[in-house]
Design a protein around this nucleic acid. Structure first.
Lengths: 251, 251
DNA sequence: CGGACATTTGACAAGCTTCAAGAGAAGTGG
DNA sequence: CCACTTCTCTTGAAGCTTGTCAAATGTCCG
């Protein structure tokens, strides 16, 4: 019940959507908003630790994360897990399944989540009737691909210190962008195992690396909230200079 | 001049497109084909080693790779390079730039390439006038995201042997899918440095790992062509069971 | 033949993983 | 209210995978 927005449940009609009121998203016409509201079949709540999509699930839905954190992941048979990316409020999820690619990734709630679930099998109708929204969806897919590119550079070429610095910067900036930073701190519901699995590191080494950065005074992680104490140093270490994107589309 | 298709230059009109005749791509209506042809501004040829898109380039074009191989990559200031994915004939390239995200990845030709270049700034018109094509583009973006997910699992959690096995399987299958496998071999223009950079390994370790798999009789790499000698073993090692996708859209 | 470049090998160093175990925090039930 | 459990964080030590350095061999091409 900390962050006002994060713990909120999606309102019944999109005209009252609190996400849109943050000013972080592109404007839509009333007609588009009506369509979106009709396209939405309902609201679902998943509690922390719950499963939004199972690995190999066939009939997964398309939805937008309204509040809370989740993450996409893949696992191997011996239990190794790779977190592919983190999902924050406003993120559209489930495109891959929608196109018939059997979902080979799972999605798990990191905190209590509220979702706007959309109709199955009518994505094509959306493109046909509201090309603008189709365009926006493509924007989102393309933008997420940019995040994956960055993550790939991280796991492929950055060392442990650079990886951790990168992750802290990345998540903080994303939270900031959608107005979820308060008093210089952002909610940070990941535990060290999540961080390790996102960065391709072991739990122990992740701990030691986090510790080192913290002792160097670069960040502070306390009470489930993250504060960046030396943004310059962090971005230099990570070599991560993200151009803060303009307004994002929101479905 | 080996593979008949790979070295071919894109014909002046899309109705004679040899890619479409492979049967690997979804059918389009004559009207759509006309639009595509009008949307295309020209054909460009880039020779092996040349640059299709520079890192940080602002005005990069949208295009489809008609023939040849290329790869997307990112580099760090000290020269570390991560190859994000490989581009094969039929792949659409440049969506990220199109949406204003400054391109933070470069694209380089691995072999001589022939490209169909599309109009700048008219992607929105495409979505508006031919929603079906917009839908297809989103399919492509989503599909590519699936590849990136798999690569992320590779660099994050697979060991060297698994990584190499994964890459060989992945590229062979993609070539097979678009009809570029002949006599059980596929063109394979990567050198070991490319493989290393794609897998997040060092050159030396990549060499030793490749050597081991080859001595085990799992594959053969000769004259720039790849033959898989034990597909079962390779996919078991990599734990990579790709569901061969249906027809792909082609722009 | 000479030069540039890719591949191959060995030896050594290092970063990261694994193993093991203790400390702290938070929730549960008597 | 306190023992007990469980989970997360923390730390040390040892081992292994992978990276780095160096050099030889092979290959292609002018």
């Amino acid at each position: 019940m900390n962050a006002p927005l994060t713990s909120a449940v999606c309102p019944p009609n999109c005209h009252n959507c609190r996400l849109r009121q943050t000013g972080a998203f592109t404007l839509v016409t009333p007609a588009q908003l009506d369509f979106i509201e009709g396209f939405r079949t309902g609201v679902t709540v998943v509690e922390a630790g719950g499963t939004l999509v199972r690995e190999n699930q066939v009939n997964a839905k398309l939805f937008t994360l309204y509040s809370g954190w989740a993450f996409r992941y893949k696992t191997m048979s011996d239990g190794r897990r790779q977190i592919l990316n983190f999902l924050l409020p406003g993120d559209l999820v489930g495109l891959q399944q929608e196109f018939g690619d059997v979902s080979t990734h799972g999605i798990e709630a990191l905190t209590d989540c509220s979702l706007c679930v959309f109709q199955n099998d009518s994505l094509w109708a959306l493109f046909r009737e509201h090309p603008r929204l189709g365009y926006d969806i493509t924007w989102l897919a393309s933008h997420e691909e940019g995040h994956l590119d960055e993550n790939l550079l991280t796991t492929g070429r950055r060392n442990a210190t650079e990886r951790v610095a990168m992750l802290l910067m990345h998540l903080y900036r994303r939270m900031d962008r959608i107005g979820l930073v308060e008093d210089g701190t952002a909610e940070f519901p990941l535990n060290q195992q999540h961080i390790a699995d996102a960065l391709g590191l072991s739990l122990v080494h992740t701990n030691k690396t986090l510790r080192r950065l913290s002792l160097l005074g670069l960040h502070e992680l306390k009470n489930g909230r993250l504060r960046l104490l030396n943004t310059r140093a962090l971005s230099r270490i990570a070599e991560y200079y993200d151009t803060p994107p303009p307004l994002m589309p929101l479905l």
